Simulated scan of single mutants.
Amino acid sequence: MESIRWLLATAGVEFEEVFLTKKEHYEKLLNDGALMFQQVPLVEIDGMQLVQSKAILNYIAGKYNLYGKDLKERAL
């Protein structure tokens, strides 16, 4: 989740963190169908519930134009 926090901060996006402090919190997310692949982190953005860090990072980078202008910039 740390890389997601950094990217959101770079984009200037305010966000709220909710920590799973009990097994019951995780189980509730599972039972509600919120965790695709039964994984965390989970980011709720634009009416979607995204899991898997790479997918979340790709979405945020695309939304806030943080990909870089070319492949070299993206790699750096």
Rank of each mutant, 00 (worst) to 15 (best):
G33H: 08
N65V: 09
N31K: 12
K54S: 12
L8I: 04
V43T: 13
Y59P: 03
V18S: 11
G47H: 06
F37A: 08
A9R: 10
N31Q: 12
I45W: 00
Y64A: 02
K63Q: 07
M1W: 12
E27K: 13
L42I: 09
K69E: 14
D70L: 15
I45V: 15
N58E: 09
S3I: 01
E44M: 07
K22T: 13
V13E: 05
Q39A: 08
K72F: 11
N65P: 05
A11C: 06
A55Y: 04
I60G: 01
D46R: 03
L7T: 07
E2C: 09
E44C: 06
T21F: 11
I4Y: 01
Q38N: 15
L29D: 03
E24T: 14
M36H: 15
M36A: 09
K69M: 13
E27A: 13
Q38T: 04
E44T: 09
E16H: 04
W6K: 14
N31M: 09
N58S: 05
V43G: 00
M36L: 11
L57H: 10
L35S: 04
Y67R: 09
Q38H: 12
D70M: 15
I4N: 04
E17N: 13
Y64M: 04
K22D: 13
R74A: 08
R74T: 06
M36P: 01
A34Q: 12
I56F: 09
L20P: 02
W6H: 10
F37G: 05
A55Q: 06
G33R: 05
D32Y: 00
D32W: 00
M36I: 06
K69T: 14
L35F: 05
M48N: 14
Y64L: 03
I60K: 03
L76F: 15
L35D: 04
Y67V: 11
N65H: 10
N65E: 08
L76C: 11
K28W: 06
E16C: 00
L8F: 05
Q52I: 07
T21Y: 13
K54A: 14
M36E: 13
K72N: 13
K69D: 10
G12L: 10
R74W: 08
A75E: 11
Q49M: 12
S3A: 02
Y64P: 02
E16Q: 11
E73V: 01
E24H: 08
F37Y: 12
M1H: 14
I60Y: 01
L71I: 15
R5E: 12
G62I: 00
V40C: 02
N65M: 11
F15Q: 03
P41K: 02
T21G: 15
Q39N: 12
